Simulated assay, not measured.
Amino acid sequence: MSEILACQILILDGTTISQDVNKRAVGQVLLNLVYKHLGLDEKDYFGLMFTDDKSNVRWLDPLKLIRKQIKRGPYNFKFKVKLYPIQPTYLFEESTRYYMSLQIRENILQQRLPCSGDSFALLAGYIVQGEFGDSEVNDPGYLDEVPFLENVPNEIIAQVLELHKRNKGLSPAECDRKILDLSSRFTLYGLDFHDALDHAGIPILLGISGLGVSVFCGEMPQLTKLNHFPWVRVGSVNYRNKQLILEMLPIVGQTFEDSIIFMMPSKIACKETWKSCIEHHAFFRSIQPPKRPNRTNLFRRGSTFRYSGRTQLRLLQEGATNTLERKPSRRFERLSSRNRFSNRQSHARQTL
Score class of each variant (00 low, 15 high):
P290T: 08
V234Q: 00
F186R: 06
C270D: 11
G201R: 00
L60W: 11
C7F: 07
I17T: 11
R331K: 14
L315T: 06
M220W: 04
L122E: 13
F332R: 15
R330L: 15
S266P: 05
G207H: 12
V29F: 08
G190A: 08
G141Q: 06
I157E: 15
S346H: 13
S18D: 10
I268V: 14
A196D: 02
R166D: 12
T187I: 07
G319A: 08
G201E: 00
N322K: 07
G210T: 11
V252D: 01
S308T: 09
T89Y: 10
K36P: 01
N241F: 00
K242L: 08
H37W: 02
E333K: 15
T89G: 04
G39E: 11
T16A: 09
P85H: 12
E162S: 09
A196S: 05
Q111E: 08
A6M: 05
A158I: 02
T321Y: 10
D195A: 10
I86D: 07
S95F: 05
G125E: 02
L38M: 12
Q28T: 09
G141M: 05
S55L: 10
P147F: 08
E279P: 09
N297K: 02
E155Q: 04
L197K: 01
K64M: 14
K267H: 03
Y189I: 10
D44V: 05
L10F: 03
G14K: 07
L48D: 06
G133S: 01
A269S: 02
Y35V: 09
Q345I: 13
V29L: 10
I251V: 14
M100A: 09
A6N: 14
L102Y: 10
G212Q: 06
S337I: 06
Q103R: 03
K68P: 00
R58M: 14
L211I: 10
D41G: 08
K168I: 00
N339T: 13
Q350H: 06
L335N: 12
T96D: 11
I157D: 14
V21I: 15
W274V: 03
Y99K: 15
S266M: 03
G169R: 11
I104M: 10
S259C: 03
L223S: 02
N343Y: 12
W59Y: 12
L206I: 13
I202Q: 02
R72H: 12
L5R: 05
Y45D: 04
Q159W: 00
F186Y: 13
K71W: 04
S135G: 07
L324P: 00
L12R: 06
L352Q: 03
L324M: 11
S308Y: 05
R344E: 01
E174C: 06
K71A: 15
H281F: 15
R340V: 00
S286Y: 04
Y35T: 06
G207M: 12
N343F: 01
D61S: 11
Q87I: 13
K78E: 13
L63I: 12
E174V: 05
C115T: 10
V81C: 13
N107E: 15
M100D: 09
C115G: 04
G117H: 07
E136L: 07
R326N: 14
S346M: 14
R314L: 08
G73N: 03
P153I: 00
S329T: 09
S329M: 01
S336T: 15
N339M: 15
T16Y: 04
N138W: 07
N297I: 00
Y239F: 13
H281N: 09
D176P: 03
N138A: 05
P265E: 07
